[in-house]
């Protein structure tokens, strides 16, 4: 799961919180970009941006840990799967509506053609 990777990075950053001055500087530079400020240029700016994004995740993770609600993410994932299922079922209902419409059309045409025999 790709979202897990961001969590992984965030967790890594959390456990290394005091360690890496270079990373902290990158986060500082990058957070300007994430907030929609003017970006610096070049490949390094991209790393800064990524670092800032991971740092945001880190803060979220910290809050989650503090609140003891780390399992919440999986509930979200479940919701996505259920939503997809709900949509598939809803689409089937749409098909049935369409078929029902077709039946009504056939009926209307038969009635117009004259009274049914039998």
């Amino acid at each position: 799961m790709s979202d897990d990777v961001m969590r992984f990075f965030a967790a890594w950053m959390l456990t290394h919180e005091v360690a890496d001055e270079g990373l902290k500087a990158a986060v500082l530079r990058g957070s300007g970009q994430v907030q929609g400020g003017m970006a610096a240029d070049g490949p390094d700016a991209f790393v800064d941006g990524l670092a800032a994004m991971v740092a945001q995740r880190k803060e979220a993770l910290k809050a989650e840990l503090a609140a003891g609600s780390v399992a919440a993410a999986t509930a979200d994932e479940q919701k996505v799967v259920f939503d997809e299922l709900r949509f598939e079922v809803a689409e089937m209902r749409g098909r049935i509506d369409e078929v029902q419409g077709t039946l009504e059309t056939i009926l209307a045409k038969l009635e117009a053609a004259g009274p049914a025999r039998g």
Binding site: D3, M6, F46
Partner: peptide
């Protein structure tokens, strides 16, 4: 390009974990 930036960064970040 500013609008694209966070999406791009996030998606690449995620793909690093493939």
């Amino acid at each position: 390009m500013d609008v694209a930036r966070p999406f791009v960064t996030q998606l690449i970040g995620e793909s690093l974990g493939r």
